[in-house]
Amino acid sequence: MVELGPDGLTGYLVAAAVLFVAGVFAAVARRNAIGVLIGIELMLNAAALQFTAYGRIHAATGDVQGQTAGVFVVVVAAAEAVVALALLFAVYRSAHDIDLEKTRELHS
């Protein structure tokens, strides 16, 4: 039972794996740029969750290195979100839409 509870890895790993797989799917299969962005956020969260989970369960007592890595992931995610938003804005300005199927042309 331990394995399946909050003190075991299993639950976190299952959650992280689903987050990641869902993220990959969204990033690939969404035709809207925001969908892709959502996918990327999901994947990043999966990674952060894994970091923290391994750091908590696997490492020595009181070690917060996993969490620290998680903090970095959040920082990266924030930066990525800002840049992605700017890019979306630029794409929108030139194509008046952010549908990736429509904005395939490399026009100015």
Binding site: N32, A33, I34, A78, L85, V91, H96, I98
Partner: peptide, 14 residues
């Protein structure tokens, strides 16, 4: 933060 940003971004979508 990020989520609100993305919510704003949905405004771009037709």
């Amino acid at each position: 933060g990020v989520l609100v940003l993305i919510l704003f971004a949905t405004l771009f979508s037709a």
